[in-house]
């Protein structure tokens, strides 16, 4: 009597896990197709390819941040530092050392990632509000270095005099216009997203989520949580640096603004707006944030108020973010979805 029912229950569990997994894979593939096709459909709805590049760059940075914020539970308010280091790394490499954009991008990513790996352990010594304040202050340090080291970084005026050079492959030359650059950004975005996805589905990623859920308990279990938070910090900073490198190539320009805490705040709101507990939340947040900013700044001088209102409204009324709220509404209809936790 009891055996069949328990058997059927495990059956049901097995069938619900697999389609769930499949649905996710299919969803990701669909998202990939939509992103690949952007240059074809975006102009039809009044957009332009560079705008999509910018969205993906911000989304990548916010997804990197979200590994630490949403999945490890570390509120960093200083990720612009690693984003900016990536940008300056790329800019300086292209200006002084190489014309190969891939080497420059790698160098920028390594620079930002190394800084995050070195500074993460210092910040990880504290938790909660304290952790945030330390990350803010560390971030500002790089801002002042960039402003003050005039001869090397160009100071307040920013770093100019570099550009993304054409890529020579055997048999063809890519001029790296808007279209080529978009696909380059997309490839980097895809690599970053794939890396994060893999990490989050690995034991390492499960440890991160466990730290977020119950830090004390993991400490009692003998996990060196500080070390794991530092690892999460380093990975997340590296991804942000990759995005920053792309940002420098986007406009062939970088300035201390990319190191300032305002940008860190923007990354945070992008993650929170989209849903920081959801893997693709930052992408959704970036789409909305960049489109609104682009549109509003073209129609009014008071665009900062609108951005500020986005912060206020999303914090007060959509604490779960857009994807989180959608999941919540769906969970009201079907309780099974409540069990799912991203990714």
């Amino acid at each position: 009597m009891s055996t069949p029912s328990s058997l059927s229950r495990t059956d049901a569990a097995a069938t619900t896990t697999n389609p769930k997994f499949n649905r996710r894979v299919i969803g990701n593939l669909l998202l990939g197709l939509v992103l690949i096709a952007v240059p074809f459909w975006l102009p039809l709805v009044g957009g332009y390819t560079d705008l999509a590049s910018r969205v993906l760059i911000y989304a990548l940075a916010a997804m990197g941040l979200n590994l630490l914020l949403g999945f490890t539970g570390g509120l960093s308010f200083g990720h612009a530092a690693y984003f900016g280091l990536g940008a300056y790394g790329v800019g300086l490499m292209l200006k002084y050392e190489t014309h190969n954009i891939f080497i420059a991008l790698l160098a920028g990513t390594v620079l930002g990632g190394a800084a995050a790996a070195l500074l993460g352990p210092i910040a990880a010594r504290r938790r909660g509000i304290y952790f945030s304040m330390i990350t803010i202050a560390i971030g500002q340090m790089f801002y002042f270095i960039a402003v003050r080291w005039n001869s090397f970084t160009g100071g307040y005026d920013g770093l100019t005099g570099f550009s993304r050079h054409p890529v020579h492959l055997p048999g063809l030359t890519l001029p790296m216009g808007s279209l080529d650059f978009y696909y380059m950004v997309l490839i980097c975005f895809g690599l970053g997203a794939w890396g994060l996805w893999t990490i989050l589905n690995s034991p390492l990623g499960h440890t991160f989520v466990a730290i977020r859920e119950n830090h004390k308990r993991l400490t009692f279990l003998g996990i060196r949580t500080q070390r794991y938070i530092a690892i999460s910090f380093a990975i997340s900073g590296t991804i942000a640096a990759l995005a920053g490198g792309l940002d420098a190539m986007y406009g062939n320009f970088t300035s201390p603004n990319v190191l300032e805490y305002t940008l860190s705040g923007n990354f945070l709101i992008i993650a929170v707006l989209g849903g920081m507990r959801n893997f693709w939340g930052p992408l959704v947040g970036a789409v909305i944030f960049i489109l609104v900013r682009d549109y509003v700044s073209s129609i009014t001088h008071n665009w900062m108020t609108v951005i500020g209102l986005i912060f206020v409204v999303s914090v007060l009324f959509f604490p779960l973010g857009i994807l989180g709220s959608i999941k919540d509404w769906r969970a009201l209809i079907s309780p099974r979805i409540r069990e799912q936790d991203a990714p």
Binding site: L69, L75, F77, G128, I129, S132, G265, L268, I269, V272, M304, T305, I307, G308, L309, I310, F311, V312, S314, V315, L316, P319
Partner: peptide
Amino acid sequence: PIYTLLLTFGLALI
């Protein structure tokens, strides 16, 4: 703490 942080950040902009 992220919510009050982001709220006051937005208020600062406004």
